[in-house]
């Protein structure tokens, strides 16, 4: 295993409804790193994110994904979450009738229980939450609202980032968290992610656009095309994509 690898993906293939979307992904993410995965629509970016989180509709047909040396693909979605994997959803789901506060505390306590830590009561939890809310620029009115229900697109994305801040995962995957955000919201999201960077955690930013990467400096940029990583490089690669678009990548892609 690669030294310090938090996530190690080898030749990963996955299908959705019988159609192969991922066709041999290789990716290594080390603790302390920020990776950006870019690519045109339909290249498999979101599929990769969902496969790593354990979406039941995605079937892995070949390859492996190891997280902290363990077989990630053998774990249920909840086990992955409890072990420190977090996916910020591209389309966060509304849960009617369940308040954000209740949901967040249930998630925190599920993870604490897994770690053998004490459960937080409502009052302790609210105290701990205060500072996280400040980070994303929210007041506690969002906590008494049902999860994502009636939230605007931007509010849903911020709510994902609030969960990220509260759950403090080791491996965070942000699936197009930047799309549909205005510039202020984008800055808030980026600043929050920056603040949460630590030597022992890692972030994978899945995005279509360059602009979030002007606020979060990635260590490695990958380009995904037709289910494979066709190019990897430093942050200058993202800039190149911004200038030239994705067409030159498609042309440069190796022929299967």
């Amino acid at each position: 295993m690669t030294r310090n690898a938090l996530l190690e993906i080898r030749d990963l293939h996955a299908t959705v409804e019988g159609q192969e979307i991922l066709r041999g992904i290789d990716l290594t993410v080390r603790a302390g790193e920020v990776h950006a995965i870019m690519g045109p629509n339909g290249s498999g970016k979101s599929t990769l994110a969902q496969v790593l989180a354990g979406h039941p509709a995605y079937v892995v047909t070949a390859g492996s994904a190891r997280y902290e040396g363990k077989d990630l693909l053998a774990m249920t979605p909840e086990e992955r979450a409890r072990e420190g994997v977090f996916l910020a959803f591209q389309y966060p789901v509304a849960i009617r009738g369940i308040t954000n506060a209740y949901f967040l505390r249930a998630a925190v306590n599920a993870i604490r229980k897994h770690r053998g830590e004490e459960q937080l009561g409502p009052v302790e939890f609210m105290d701990a939450l205060e500072e996280k809310l400040k980070v994303i620029g929210w007041d506690d009115s969002y906590l008494s609202r049902p999860v994502n229900e009636g939230f605007s697109g931007g509010e849903k994305k911020r709510n994902e980032i609030l969960q990220l801040a509260v759950l403090e995962p080791k491996l965070a995957i942000l699936d197009e968290t930047d799309s549909g955000l205005d510039i202020d919201a984008l800055k808030t999201v980026a600043q929050t992610v920056q603040k949460l960077r630590r030597p022992d955690n890692a972030t994978v930013i899945v995005t279509h656009y360059y602009r979030i990467l002007t606020h979060i400096q990635p260590d490695v940029v990958h380009v995904l095309s037709a289910g494979r990583i066709v190019k990897s490089g430093g942050k200058e690669l993202a800039l190149e994509l911004e200038e030239k678009g994705y067409d030159w990548i498609r042309e440069a892609a190796p022929v299967a």
Partner: peptide, 11 residues
Amino acid sequence: ALYYLRSRGLS
């Protein structure tokens, strides 16, 4: 919705 909750650690 069930998957979303499970992805946050709930059984």
